[in-house]
């Protein structure tokens, strides 16, 4: 148990990302508000970003800028950070697009509640 706990503590960024992921997932699952679902998705993505960046971290590593004069013992891995920058960009664009769609849905249905939208559409289909 103690070993497990210590492992958890040592890997706290991963734990945080798992917690974030679960929060995001449950938000997407349980909230019927479209915005909240979108936010849930963003939280989930943040969890993954966090995991990625944490993977690139080296304990006590320096900023990965090569300083000829003062070469550090170790640098953190810069690639995950760079990649996550791209990931964030992607995430933002997705969010933007989703928001645009929500606007259209609101225009059409007059609500941002997914369940009500579904009911309205099914009602249309049934008729």
């Amino acid at each position: 148990m103690r070993i497990l706990l210590s492992k958890l503590l040592i890997n706290y960024p991963y734990m945080a990302s798992v917690v974030l992921f679960i929060i995001g997932a449950s938000t997407v699952l349980t909230r019927s508000n479209l915005f909240k679902k979108l936010i849930g998705i963003n939280i989930m993505e943040s969890a993954i970003f966090l995991m990625f960046i944490a993977a690139g971290n080296t304990r006590g590593g320096a900023v990965p800028i090569l300083d000829q004069a003062n070469p550090g013992a170790s640098y953190i891995n810069p690639i995950p950070s760079a990649l996550m920058l791209t990931g964030i960009v992607v995430s933002v664009s997705v969010t933007a697009f989703a928001l645009a769609l929500i606007v259209r849905l609101y225009d059409s249905y007059g609500t941002t509640n997914a369940r009500r939208i579904a009911e309205m559409r099914n009602g249309v289909a049934d008729r």
Binding site: V94, A98, L101, L105, I117
Partner: peptide
Amino acid sequence: PSGAEAAFNYLILAT
């Protein structure tokens, strides 16, 4: 509107 809804659903899942 169903297009937007399908797209949104798709978007959420795809994301």
